[in-house]
């Protein structure tokens, strides 16, 4: 008999609703068993569509029954503690949305816990599982450095894509707050933006620029985004992002190396399930290989990797040490960027 794994959803926001629920719906061998969100109205609304119980916190969800698999789609600051709680509770597998953790100490703590329990772990860094990227990666590995890498992300508001991926349940609008708040702290904004958005591209870039040396320029962009240029072992990296706004979804990774080595890759926006990355890679011998979009995306591949670990005992595509190194690479860049702009009084244009 095929084992059906129960899945507990930690956080019922857009990532859970628009990404994981549609993905789970197409997979065999998985069944959502509970939905948790501190906004109980949202948790109940999402749970009701699945005929499962809702919970207001992680302890409550675990009391309802420890799932085989937990999906962490909560705010970044909670990921590490939730991973530790889930590992201790005995879940067999965790799909944790990026960023895996926020500090090196958290990385160390979850590493120890996961290694001790043998919990299967997949990080929801969908580009690392994207079949188009994986095809391109085999070619990119043949490129010759040093490299200039350019990641650009210009997107309309996420809601535009969330609403096309699912029937979203959103929290009730918040009432007026007493405090007007001040302008965003640009260092904090950039730090958060690196850990929340640039982190999609960083695992891909780490294969070309394996270590950072310095951030040459960093600035926060209004309304939300970043402009960074950093140098590292192997070359230079530009990271640009700005959203939301009225513009064409534009998510690109450009790579230029020695001679004819170059690559141009396009990624679909998050949330929508419209296939994989696409683009082209030109090799050192001048041959250009096209990467046509695949019908599946990284979201499906993440789950397939986790399920293969649990059903077949397969080795993970990305071992724990690899995903820890990925997140430490991002944490380091975020810290360098924040330090570079600390003291700026205005959000840059």
């Amino acid at each position: 008999m095929v084992k059906t794994f129960t899945v507990g959803l930690i956080g019922a926001g857009p990532v859970t609703q628009a990404i994981h629920l549609p993905t789970l719906a197409r997979l065999d061998g998985v069944r959502v068993a509970g939905v948790m969100d501190p906004d109980m109205a949202v948790a109940q609304a999402v749970a009701a569509t699945l005929d499962v119980p809702a919970a207001a916190n992680l302890d409550q969800l675990l009391q309802q029954g420890v799932p085989d698999i937990a999906v962490i789609g909560s705010p970044n600051a909670f990921h590490a503690t939730q991973i530790l709680t889930l590992v201790q509770a005995g879940v067999r597998g965790i799909l944790a949305e990026k960023p895996l953790v926020m500090t090196p100490d958290e990385a160390q703590a979850i590493t120890a816990a996961i290694e001790q329990q043998g919990t299967a772990l997949v990080v929801g860094a969908m580009h690392t599982y994207d079949p188009g990227w994986l095809e391109a990666q085999e070619l990119v590995r043949q490129l010759e450095g040093p490299f200039h890498v350019r990641s650009t992300i210009y997107l309309p508001a996420n809601a535009r894509f969330e609403d096309r991926a699912t029937n979203m349940v959103r929290p009730a609008p918040a009432g007026p707050t007493g405090s007007a708040g001040g302008p965003p702290n640009p260092a904090q904004l950039v730090h958060g933006a690196v850990m929340g958005l640039a982190i999609h591209a960083l695992p891909l870039i780490r294969g070309l620029i394996p270590a950072w040396e310095r951030v040459e320029h960093a600035a926060a962009l209004a309304p939300w985004g970043y402009n960074m240029t950093a140098t590292g072992r192997g070359g230079t990296v530009e990271l640009l992002a700005r959203m939301p706004g009225t513009w064409r979804p534009d998510w690109q990774l450009g790579i230029w190396g020695a001679g004819t080595s170059q690559a141009a890759l396009n990624f679909p926006p998050s949330y929508v399930h419209n296939g994989s990355a696409w683009g082209q890679v030109t090799l050192p011998d001048g041959a250009t290989k096209a990467i046509a979009p695949h019908l599946t995306n990284g979201y499906v591949a993440e789950w397939q990797d986790l399920l293969a670990q649990l059903t077949e005992g397969a080795a993970p595509r990305y071992p724990l040490v690899h995903v820890i190194d990925d997140v430490l690479y991002a944490i380091e860049l975020a810290g360098l960027a924040a330090a570079a702009i600390a003291g700026e009084s205005e959000v840059a244009r």
């Binding site: 600035a219 962009l221 402009n227 640009l240 080595s261 170059q262 030109t282 001048g286 244009r349």
Partner: peptide, 15 residues
């Protein structure tokens, strides 16, 4: 007063 970010890359083999 728009911020301007300009990248200029040179290489005989580049498209």
């Amino acid at each position: 007063r728009a911020g301007v970010h300009l990248t200029v890359l040179q290489g005989a083999g580049y498209t």
